[in-house]
Nucleic acid binder design. Structure first.
Lengths: 224, 224
DNA sequence: AATAAAAATTAGGTGTGACTAAATTATAGT
DNA sequence: ACTATAATTTAGTCACACCTAATTTTTATT
């Protein structure tokens, strides 16, 4: 039939995240994420949209979305990735800023048995070390009620549930500020002009974060 | 430079095991092990023997051996493979007949950090679940004093240290006979004609094994 | 509505690593 | 030493997934 190669998995994973907001993914955006030329994406996407069970929907100049099959395949890889990150941190002592690369490589090659065994060893976790939701074994993505920290306004309180970042340096920076899942936040001051937000993290001295940071941190306001 | 791809690693690994006995590896033998056509091997081997830092020594019709660089690369992969097998069995509950495939895939993709972390978690083991020696972190292969069970003669006693097999069905069979590393063996009877060996395993009722089995089991006669 | 700029696609080309078929070289038997 | 057979290599092809350059389509501006 049609083997889903490592490459194709990477395409599907990126298409998944790009189309998460509801919009179709443009070839250019995909190319940028994958670090390849737009023309190469066009070719690949045409291939993925062909055959009897296409993995993506594609019409010229209209962007790409996942078919149900493609979505399944994407969620499978994402589940692998997030379980791996969780395992590396929890069981092998990796730091949270260091797991992305390793998980990105291994996610394509672990078997279903490996997936299931590490999931069990971890107690079937729902979130990875960054708070990202882990798709269920049935490949359904749990719903996420969180909102961006950048939307928080004084004097709202919230708890960090998720940090959307792969970049090592950024993650280390966030950790040094205490901006990790579980941290309690109170918005202290908001500047309309530069979108800076002054927040208090876990009762410590307030800090100021710009939107480059606050856009990547997600919180819930009324945690149980 | 010259990236050592997954493919090349597989070549080097097979060349390592084929040249273990001292002989150069023939292209045909390599092709059989790798499951590809002999002609393909010739092409690949010519490439590997070229460049400034060749990974193999090769002369037409003379077979292939590893250069020091090639040997290092092979031992790196073999270390990955055997550490992975050990980790899968010890930490994730895999059965010994089921680890080969998984390790064969992952061995190419784990980082040095991963290698080192699982080695530490396992207490820097010297042998994998089949008793195969694990190259050291400095990529030296420990020496192995064992001899084939097929060379044992009544009334010699020995202990199994190593089982040279990847095949799942064979491994399950051996396990059911108690022929696993650590088992105590006494040779009871040897048939010169069919090379069958009757042995007693761990004080149980004697069993008869043919050379297809006894050639793959390695023992030491005078364990400390 | 015309046109400039941006986005996307087509066309043509590359390297990798496999393949088959044909030719060559080595080995073994008489 | 000769010849049949086996092993190996050469030659030529293919699919994959990328590339660059050129073209076409879309979009945004005036």
């Amino acid at each position: 039939m049609k083997p889903i190669t490592q490459n194709i998995q990477d395409y599907l994973k990126e298409i998944y995240t790009l189309t998460d907001g509801g919009e179709a993914a443009s070839t250019t955006a995909l190319a940028a994420r994958l670090g390849i030329a737009p023309a190469s994406v066009t070719g690949m996407v045409q291939k993925l949209a062909g055959g009897t069970h296409p993995l993506v929907n594609y019409r010229k100049h209209q962007g790409v979305t996942l078919t149900p099959e493609g979505k399944r395949a994407a969620l499978e890889v994402i589940r692998h990735h997030r379980l791996l990150e969780t395992y590396l941190v929890t069981m092998l002592g990796y730091s949270w800023d260091n797991v992305h690369e390793e998980a990105c490589r291994l996610e394509h090659f672990i078997s279903e048995e490996f997936e299931s065994r590490i999931a069990v060893a971890l107690g079937n976790p729902i979130r990875d070390p960054h708070g990202e939701l882990i798709p269920t074994p049935e490949l359904e993505m749990p719903s996420d009620e969180s909102l961006a920290l950048s939307a928080l306004r004084p004097p709202q309180k919230a708890v960090i549930v998720r940090v959307r970042a792969d970049d090592s340096a950024l993650l280390r920076h966030l950790e040094s500020l205490g901006l990790v899942p579980g941290a309690k936040i109170q918005a202290v001051e908001y500047s309309l002009f530069d979108h800076n937000l002054r927040i208090q993290v876990d009762e410590k001295l307030p800090i100021v974060v710009g939107s480059a940071i606050s856009d990547k941190i997600f919180v819930v306001c009324n945690p149980l």
